[in-house]
Nucleic acid binder design. Structure first.
Lengths: 219, 219
DNA sequence: AATAAATTTTAGACAAATCTAAATTTATTC
DNA sequence: GAATAAATTTAGATTTGTCTAAAATTTATT
């Protein structure tokens, strides 16, 4: 099923506003999209007829299963394009949102999947938000970042937050990879840098910035 | 000045139809964009009011200087995105046109310039068409068709005469692409078909029809 | 519980881009 | 050069997405 850019913007907005399973209000969406409440009502009728939301007059609304699936496809595109803009084209993380808001509406599943592959299947975008995979599944942040580990805790590196070329270069040089075992030996309160023992032998100092981008399966 | 996707499509179409400085007809644009003549007339009034075309009722029309400048910006975007899709994301050159037709409408000069830089400032797109630089200047290329080469002459494929999907499919299958080096080994007077050695190893027979559609930079 | 306030929906209008059918202008042919 | 054909424009409608103002409904407050 294909949707217009306007429809997709409403779907995305509703998704972000229905944090848990709660109902969303007309005014909330209107404020979020900088549009009028009347426009939201109009669009809701359309989304209801397309079976993406459950909605009854005056009672609030929320995305149904199909609507959520659609939202995740759009969010996947948005976050992959943001990753591309920051990691590949060297944009600052603060200047990519507007452009990604346009790029997310490009219609081509193959393009998105090839972009994902090119970027190295990143799990998180430059803002640290999780990127849904091609089935709409997100790596829920059950994964702990290394930065959240306490002293003497140990685990195994399971994912990279943001596989930019700069990060990959650093990891390559230090021979850190997915599967590497580590234990936190010390944390300096001054800059929150950590001393980490890798595979029971090598001792590294790791910046807080880097630690936030290394995801760990605890043991 | 910003334009809608619809406006940009008409501007691009008129640009391609006014080869030299000739006037373009309503029907020609309608056919090119698969729309009705009435729609073209409507849009022409709009483009005239925005001072992009010179146009008088029933007399034909053409882009003025500002219109041509705008067209070149759109064409630059289209061809850079095609280069990205083929060179970076490994799309076949026969499957990128539709996607580039969407991407060319993304509004961000900075994005286009950064993409250009990332791609290494390419002068020609995967179909061999010249890419305007950020000032709208194109590297015009004096090209010979393969059919005009004499025996033992050599060169490099630099463009396609008529990149139809049928032609693209043939080239894709034979792994012939822009940049492929070749030398004419033999020409059969019977049907003017040629034996061509590609990249100093592969030997192909090429029909006169195909040779006329392959443009060569001689060496 | 009645009234006031806030929220939401409806009604009617508008701009963009498109269409079909009819009218107009230009081109062609006998 | 008049009749006919082709191309172009106009007139009137339609769809999408938006708006404002008014009406309907829900929620909050005396």
């Amino acid at each position: 099923m294909l949707f217009t850019a306007a429809e997709e913007n409403y779907i995305k907005s509703i998704f972000h506003l229905q944090e848990d399973g709660s109902l969303v209000s007309t005014n909330a969406v209107a404020a979020n999209l900088h549009t009028s409440a009347a426009s939201v009502t109009d669009m809701l009728k359309k989304l209801k007829s397309k079976k993406l939301v459950s909605y009854e007059k005056y009672k609030g609304f929320k995305l149904n299963t199909e609507g959520k699936k659609t939202a995740l496809i759009i969010i996947r595109k948005h976050r992959l394009w943001e990753s591309f803009l920051v990691n590949t084209l060297q944009f600052g993380w603060d200047e990519v949102h507007e452009i990604a808001d346009q790029l997310e509406h490009i219609q081509s599943k193959k393009l998105v999947d090839k972009l994902d592959e090119f970027l190295g299947y990143p799990k998180f975008d430059p803002h640290g938000d999780p990127i849904p995979d091609s089935n709409g599944k997100m790596h829920e942040q059950i994964q702990t970042s290394l930065a959240e580990l306490a002293i003497h805790e140990s685990g195994e590196i399971s994912a990279l937050g943001n596989p930019s070329s700069a990060l990959l270069e650093l990891l390559q040089h230090k021979q850190i990879q997915i599967g590497t075992n580590l234990i936190v030996e010390k944390i300096f309160s001054f800059d929150q840098s950590m001393e980490i023992k890798m595979n029971n032998e090598l001792l590294f100092t790791i910046s807080h910035e880097l630690a936030k981008n290394l995801f760990i399966k605890k043991r």
